[in-house]
Write a protein that binds this DNA or RNA. Structure first.
Length: 591
RNA sequence: CGGAAUGUUGCCUAGUGGCUAAGGCGCCUGCUUUGGGAGCAGGAAAUCGGAGGUUCGAGUCCUCUCAUUCCGACCA
């Protein structure tokens, strides 16, 4: 490809509203163009990178026996009604009508479409197991797209779906993906971590997320350096502090003016926050069935030194949605914000964290402005409808496995794998006949990778102050030739053209900067675009005996003779590819 | 959906009620130059996000609205 012919161009300065490093370089180097919030056009350079990533995806999918299919982006509403997600998902799911007034949806993922396909084509256990996938557009009307390609509304996802007759079969496919995903990310040059995660809107039993650690990430990973435990903070567990046994003391009402927060209360009473009980008022939306949903007022109690984990609470009460309660809803059950506790409250579903339930003699609200109660004890002074773990793990807490200190870091989710089980096959009647002729629900898994997000994370990981440094495996070109023209002599141009032809004939992907630009402009653009190998052809290099060879990101350069260029380039490509290949390892599966 | 910020040419900015909206980058033409974002000369490109208002006069002040970004809620 000749640089002068490329659609798009580089920018010296990034638009002022572009923040994330990957976003800046991708825009400045002419890879992507933002059309609207969370909507991007991909220019030829980006398209080439995407093609390479997709090739790796196809390759790795083939290796675990997946077959490529294609399902549509626009889907009829009835299958989403069948699965229930038509009702469960809010405005993130875009609904529309076709000309015949039929309800349609824009697919945000393809479980329903696949189930509809599977129930028509899978009849017997003899046809199972199966594994199919596609790389298809997803639309999610996200309320807050951000950071360039990190979080967008329309994106391409590689999603595969496994169909099995047994949980053992699912486990096998799940583990195959687990390894396959590491292969894929490593082949793209991205370091990832697999962590246990919440199943969220996907439903199902077990899920892992593949995380790229970066401060711009929106997820928090809790992990233990000592034993290797890790988890998304949403579901991270930890060893609760020991309870100090005490004799239960009688409840006592005391005046606590202006003590609306745990800090103020603990300060005022000169006690540690761990001796208090925090009351959090939430309203949960419970899906009764496909047609009706009800709201449930939740009073959550956690020990004062802990933070409520809303995901854990949501899962504990089986809610579709959870929001903070309004003041009038709180007063309606007889509670007082800032001075709340379950004592004297009617009509609230009380969920108590197991630690708070066991901790003796806590200070809690009196449900009266300006008053708290000393020595509250769960079970004696108030009844819990549910006692379970609902607090958030934090850095500094103890590891649930080995008891050592936990750490926390930010991360971007680039892939996920779900053991769906029969979540969709039961609601959508995806059945097969077993050996006895009996109908059984298919046991499913679903596995996703966001292609654009992967691309941008690779840029986040591989760049310097000058631009992108692509891993050879997904670089838009393998070689970037900088031609420095010389008016007095056509030698440089002739040499460059010759090498350009030779490299292309040898199957090397070359970008030839044939523009009539100054050397500085060309070098800066080369650094920005980030092609891994740079060849400079000019009077100076020819005088030294050939072309200048430089690997992006390294400070060393060398002159190589013209007639050895193709061989040397081939060697270097093989070397860079081997480095990537070495990073691919068999990983231990962690539940 | 809450909080904040910003909208001036393709990009970055100046312009703080008063003459024809200014500069840099980029773009076009010509000359010159070619190893780290060259030089000179000429040129094109803006209904100042949109609507309404205040005013003799609005890019500038007010109201509404739209868009984008950031924080939060949300989300894979």
């Amino acid at each position: 490809m000749r640089f002068s012919r490329i659609f798009g161009h580089t920018l010296k300065e990034a638009p002022s509203d572009v923040q994330a490093v990957s976003h800046q370089y991708l825009v400045r180097a002419g890879y992507i163009h933002q059309v609207a919030a969370g909507l991007f056009s991909y220019l030829p350079l980006a398209r080439r990178v995407l093609n390479k990533i997709e090739r790796i995806l196809h390759d790795e999918m083939a290796m675990i026996g997946a077959q490529e299919i294609t399902m549509p982006v626009v889907l009829p509403a009835d299958i989403w009604q069948e699965s229930g997600r038509w009702y469960q998902i809010g405005s993130e799911l875009t609904k529309l009508k076709d000309r015949k007034d039929h309800d349609m949806v824009l697919a945000m993922t393809h479980e329903e479409a696949l189930c509809d396909l599977a129930r028509k084509y899978v009849r017997s256990y003899k046809e199972l197991p199966q594994l199919v996938y596609h790389i298809q557009t997803k639309w999610r009307d996200d309320p807050r797209p951000r950071a360039g390609l990190i979080r967008v509304r329309e994106f391409k996802m590689k999603d595969s779906y496994s169909l099995d007759t047994s949980w053992e079969g699912l486990d096998k496919q799940y583990r195959a993906h687990y390894q396959s995903y590491f292969n894929i990310f490593n082949r793209c040059g991205l370091d990832v971590l697999a962590v246990k995660s919440d199943t969220g809107m996907m439903g199902g039993k077990i899920a892992h997320e593949f995380m790229y650690l970066t401060p711009i990430g929106e997820d928090t990973i809790i992990f233990c350096d000592s034993c290797g435990y890790n988890s998304n903070r949403q579901v991270a567990e930890f060893k609760k502090p020991e309870i100090v046994e005490e004799e239960l003391k009688p409840v006592e009402k005391i005046e606590t003016p202006d003590c609306k927060t745990i800090d103020e209360l603990a300060d005022f009473l000169k006690i540690p926050a761990s001796k208090t009980a925090k009351a959090v008022f939430m309203v949960a939306t419970i899906q009764e069935n496909n047609e009706t949903e009800t709201e449930k007022f939740i009073l959550a109690i956690v020990r004062g030194d802990m933070t409520l984990n809303e995901t854990k609470l949501q899962n504990a009460v089986g809610a579709k949605d959870l929001r903070p309660a309004h003041v009038d809803e709180i007063t309606a059950v007889g509670a007082v914000p800032g001075f709340g506790s379950p004592v004297g409250v009617k009509g609230a579903y009380v969920v108590v964290d197991d630690l708070a339930a066991e901790a003796p003699n806590l200070v809690g609200g009196a449900n009266e402005e300006g008053f708290h109660l000393l020595n509250l004890n769960c079970g004696r002074d108030f009844k819990a409808d549910l006692v379970t773990d609902i607090v958030a793990a934090e850095a500094g807490f103890r590891c649930p496995v080995c008891g050592k200190t936990l750490d926390a870091e930010k991360a971007v989710e680039v892939g996920n794998i779900f053991k769906l089980g029969t979540r969709y096959s039961e609601s959508m009647n995806v059945n097969y006949q077993d050996e006895k002729g009996k109908l059984q629900p298919v046991i499913m898994g679903s596995y996703g990778i966001g292609v654009g997000r992967l691309l941008s994370c690779v840029v986040e990981q591989h760049h310097d102050n000058y631009g992108i440094i692509w891993p050879i495996t997904i670089a838009p070109f393998q070689v970037h030739m900088v031609l420095l023209q010389d008016k007095k002599s056509p030698d440089a141009e002739n040499a460059a053209e010759k090498i350009y032809e030779e490299l292309q004939a040898a199957g090397v992907e070359v970008l030839l900067d044939d523009r009539k630009e100054s050397p500085g402009t060309k070098f800066n653009d080369a650094d920005l675009i980030g092609v891994p190998i740079r060849l400079t052809v000019g009077k100076r290099s020819l005088d030294k005996g050939g072309v200048e060879f430089k690997v992006r990101g390294s400070n060393d350069s060398a002159i190589i003779p013209l007639d050895e260029t193709v061989v040397k380039i081939k060697e270097q490509i093989a070397l860079l590819e081997a480095e990537i290949a070495e990073s691919i390892k068999v990983v231990e599966y962690k539940e």
